[in-house]
Nucleic acid binder design. Structure first.
Lengths: 337, 337
DNA sequence: ACCGGAAGTGTTAACGCTAACATCCAGCCT
DNA sequence: AGGCTGGATGTTAGCGTTAACACTTCCGGT
């Protein structure tokens, strides 16, 4: 009822209605214990009546805390990164933080640095980097960032916090599965060499191979896209040496599957294929894809856990590793021979 | 050189170094013309020396403008929504805005309303809704939002601003293509009935069909996922009546393609398939998918155009429609008969 | 020589909030 | 009874910025 508010009500307005000082209202809003129950109720009632909401700018100004964490993300068109962002946002909001996003159209250090710069002027309390590498950290303001920086599912290089899937272990799971089936000539289509994930997955493949005493063929380097998977798949089919392929992500697997089909090679009878990511579609590829699943929600949760402690200054570095899981479908089988 | 800054420098500090008043520094920072070139240079030099960056909280407090736009997005795991967010962020940053993201795990009105509420407390200057419907707008604070709300690529219902692809036109492009090839029994696998995109695409399909004087078969309702496309594809194959299918997105097409293959039906010889979205992988499906491409970057740009004018109060409503484009690949051909 | 005005600069007062300190009033101990 | 403790509340002073206005010059026109 009454008085149409000309502009948003402030602490003062609530205080007047409740018959207390603005400071008491502030205490109620912030959940201080030093308020009599009766007063608290009166204030809460006034808050509701006026539709008061705290002015974050003013709060940020005086507390020097914005309640915002910044996220720099590359490859948001891909399932992995975008799922990671979603997981992170959920975890952030649950902890009372907002998330401002800066996407990275290309992954040059300059672009990364510019994005970080943008976030820093937004006074974010921490930065999460979802990017192939963290070279941007060295440039510009980045070199002396006074806030926690967490690298999410990437090279834990310069940043003091890191949370990520154990890509190497995942790759070993995939490769070992192929080895267990009896394959001896297992090729690998990797991601771009400058992406940490690509390196780690390749390393896992190598490790499993040498552990099994198998020869390590030359790596076919892709760029995560179905298109590159297709091109490399053609080469692979032409060479005709491998009986199994471990592909660094599911998208490239699509291209590979198509190249194999065009070359008249059947999967899994002639060639077995294992992917990485478990995008929701891989279950419906032709044939359904055996792949490695990552838990992106766990990733986001872990990141926020570390970060909240980091923001409070309780820890200055830390890392967390999330284990991946092999999902066996119809694209893998024992070799013919 | 000298004096290790204890905390971030402020206008006052720059002013002292440059030998001017803090207001003059403010003028330089904000690009006011009323500053003598020599003074400007001196100030700029001091800014650089001190590494000054503006405190956005203080600025927001006094100007009542946060420079932030809020985005509520559902379905970020899908190519369309996540691409839209990227396009939007790029456009926003180019215009000096930051983007705070609230993702929607499920699309209930309550969740939408909660997300909007969260953004409103962040004092965003506008809200962009990337969601199946805008029912959340009716709830809570939403009903009286004092800021521009733009619905991006969805039902332009309650919001005063809307930017979107013309889904109906896209669907007509797809269906007409099938009609032109000579198909007479063209089925449709739609998205969930409560998504605007699904409705518009279905409408376009219907319209093309009746325009061509063809019978309109019953719609098969999916949920955007490959999984639902697969299940419905099985039904379709069992019925065996259609010679062509227009599918409301590419993900479901994957499932359909797989179901068709399992049923021994060849694409495009026995059945033609057209998708919607043109995700990067559709070129490598088995077979490569004929589909409708949407320009997500244009979507983001258009949204920011409208929104900046809306924020300035120059317009209070408006909409923009982006035309889609048919991409013909190998999943469509003339019917056998 | 005087005045008007424009260009350049400085001064002051908010913006809405929290932290720190000050005050008040019970209740209780000695 | 007096003073002391501590819980509950109020008062004051900024946080760093911009808006509004005030103040100097300096120039050209009469």
């Amino acid at each position: 009822m009454s008085a149409t508010a000309r502009s948003a009500p402030r602490l003062e307005d609530v205080a007047r209605v409740a018959g207390v000082s603005h400071q008491t209202v502030s205490r109620v809003i912030n959940g201080s214990t030093k308020v009599a129950p009766a007063t608290r109720d009166r204030v809460l009632e006034a808050v509701r009546e006026l539709g008061y909401r705290r002015n974050n700018a003013a709060r940020a100004l005086v507390t020097q805390k914005s309640g915002v964490i910044g996220v720099v993300a590359a490859g948001l068109g891909y399932f992995g990164p975008s799922s990671t962002v979603v997981g992170l946002e959920l975890a952030a909001r649950a902890r009372g933080y907002s998330m401002v996003l800066a996407s990275l159209p290309d992954v040059t250090p300059e672009a990364t640095s510019a994005a970080i710069d943008h976030l820093v002027s937004e006074a974010v309390e921490a930065i999460v980097l979802i990017a192939p590498d963290d070279t941007g950290l060295d440039l510009g303001i980045g070199s002396t960032l006074p806030i926690p920086v967490l690298v999410l599912d990437a090279a834990p290089g310069r940043a003091s916090f890191a949370v990520g899937v154990d890509h190497e272990a995942g790759a070993m799971l995939a490769t070992q599965h192929l080895v267990d089936l009896g394959h001896t000539r297992i090729a690998h289509i990797s991601g771009p060499r400058d992406w940490y994930q690509a390196q780690a997955r390749e390393a896992g493949w190598r490790r499993s191979l040498s552990r099994a005493g198998l020869e390590v063929p030359e790596v076919l380097v892709g760029d995560w896209s179905a298109s590159s998977g297709f091109a490399l798949g053609r080469e692979l089919a032409a060479a005709g040496t491998a009986t199994a392929v471990f592909v660094a992500n599911d998208q490239m697997s699509i291209g590979l599957l198509r190249a194999l089909a065009e070359a008249g090679l059947r999967v899994p009878q002639d060639v077995s294929v294992v992917g990485f990511d478990d995008i929701p579609e891989s279950e419906y590829f032709t044939p359904p894809l055996t792949t490695v699943r990552q838990n992106f929600v766990a990733l986001g949760r872990g990141a926020m856990e570390l970060l909240t402690e980091g923001i409070r200054g309780e820890i200055t570095s830390g890392s967390q590793v999330v284990p991946p899981k092999l999902v066996v479908r119809a694209s893998t089988a024992r070799p013919h021979a």
